[in-house]
């Protein structure tokens, strides 16, 4: 689905990092994402709890 791009040299698009196929794999790999889901929930709850006095 990802259409790999041809980036013009010295354009703005030339500089940012692009994810490797391995990174893209981990972003979609369900067992790993389930763990991340729990960790992210925990991180958000901590932020919410600290939010107001």
């Amino acid at each position: 689905m990802e259409n790999r791009l041809v980036i013009d040299k010295y354009s703005e698009q030339y500089y940012p990092p692009t994810p490797t196929n391995t990174t893209l794999f981990w972003r979609r790999f369900i067992p790993f994402q389930l763990i991340r889901f729990m960790i992210l929930n925990w991180k958000i709850i901590r932020i919410v709890a600290k939010g107001h006095s």
């Binding site: 981990w26 972003r27 979609r28 369900i30 994402q33 389930l34 991340r36 889901f37 992210l40 929930n41 991180k43 958000i44 901590r46 932020i47 600290k50």
Partner: peptide
């Protein structure tokens, strides 16, 4: 430690 950005499927579930 609490400022972050993480892309992935888990974000969609959230």
């Amino acid at each position: 430690n609490t400022t972050m950005g993480e892309p992935g499927l888990a974000g969609h579930w959230l």
